[in-house]
């Protein structure tokens, strides 16, 4: 459509790549002493073994109170709703991975 020598077109994207989320991140504990660590394992390579090793390693730094570990059914999908809820209800802090 040419108007007054100009070509007008529509934007082909679904909007800017950057958005702003104003939700505040939860407050961190002072230490991991007494923490239950939630592990969200994406299943890539040795991610599961790494999470186990991390729990052992973190236990050398703090008196952990336990762990909750869930395994995703596919690297690129969110955890199952019930697994996600379990991490939220039973963990103090959480670790996800391994990947991008």
């Amino acid at each position: 459509m040419t108007q007054h020598g100009a070509l007008v077109t529509l934007d082909p994207t679904s909007g800017p790549l950057d958005r702003k989320d104003t939700r505040k991140l939860p407050e961190r504990p002072d230490t991991l002493n007494g923490a239950v660590v939630g592990f969200v394992v994406n299943g890539l390579g040795k991610a599961d073994a790494l999470m186990d090793a991390l729990y052992e390693e973190l236990s050398n730094h703090a008196e952990l109170a336990g762990r909750v570990k869930i395994l995703k059914d596919d690297v690129s999908i969110p955890p199952k709703k019930e697994d996600f809820a379990r991490i939220v209800s039973e963990s103090t802090v959480a670790i996800t991975g391994f990947g991008g």
């Binding site: 969200v40 969110p78 991490i87 939220v88 103090t92 802090v93 996800t96 990947g99 991008g100």
Partner: peptide, 24 residues
């Protein structure tokens, strides 16, 4: 990464483990 962000929004302090090759 998104799993960690969703957990933060649900109130759980979380850290994602990322290889440098995937940081993009």
């Amino acid at each position: 990464m998104r799993d960690a962000i969703e957990l933060e929004w649900a109130g759980i302090p979380t850290v994602a483990l990322i290889h440098k090759a995937m940081s993009g």
